[in-house]
Amino acid sequence: MRRSRRSTRIATAGLLLGIAILFAFPLYYLVVTSLKTKAELFAAVPSLVPQALNLAPYSSVLFGRGFTGLLVNSVIVGLSATVLAVLVAFAICYPITRLPASRRLRGFVLNWAMSLRFLPPIAVVIPYFAIIRTIGLYNELPALILVYTIFNLPLAIWMLRGFLDEIPLELEQAALVDGASRWQAFRSVLLPLSRTAILAVVIIVFAFDWAEFLFAFILTATPQAQTFPVGVQGLVTQFEIIWNDMAAGGVIAIIIPLTLMLIARRHVMTGLTFGVIREK
């Protein structure tokens, strides 16, 4: 009995390890490919282990192909849209969590935000494409900032609202009783207490902005306004793929959201499930 249990445990551990390797391997191979030299690319049988630490594909992508500009665009769009989305989300969440908003109003705002999450980007981008061309923002960064801000609001609102609900109302009320104004109570009590929460939302929203592809693909046309994922797409769909460059582009595209999400790892699932999963 005990023996068979032990062997089941070993078998399950083996199974889990197998699954982990199966999932990790494609990423491992991406990194290996991104380090290959031109000569290695033409090897009859691609090698599975890095032969050398060859960083040429990275410099080729960033400087040779001028992707640094796209990187800058991604950062500008990501930072602006994130700051805007978090500010707007805070302005929406404050009255519905800290003030006596009616249950119906609160429900309406939250429901509306989540219903946005269910709209496919392709359906949304078609009318935005027309609007943005009409107002002359086609192939301009502000167009992306606007669209990203709106469509990451659901995430920002639901995350912030979850965090704010966890901060006891009594703390602000104590300040109000002591004669502070609502603004002072907000500034000196709520804001310091929600600093970590705001940071988590900023990190996760930025990671989503960074990864966005379809809006940027349709609303921009030249490297002047294209974002990094649009550039990476070009590396894959061109007629003759340069494998090491493509892989290096992929690694760069991955490394930034991955690092951010690892920093905010305790909150990632909260964000992705709209607060259903809560980290203690």
């Binding site: 982990a20 990423l27 191979y29 960074w210 990864a211 493509m246 790892r265």
Partner: peptide
């Protein structure tokens, strides 16, 4: 395991396409 499982989720979709191009490509794919 939590951190490992999070990795695929947070990768941009475009990069996921790149990863699997390297897996499925007929002549070069692993």
């Amino acid at each position: 395991i939590y951190v490992l499982a999070m990795i695929p989720i947070v990768i941009p979709q475009i990069a996921v396409g790149v990863v699997f191009r390297l897996v499925y490509q007929p002549d070069y794919g692993i």
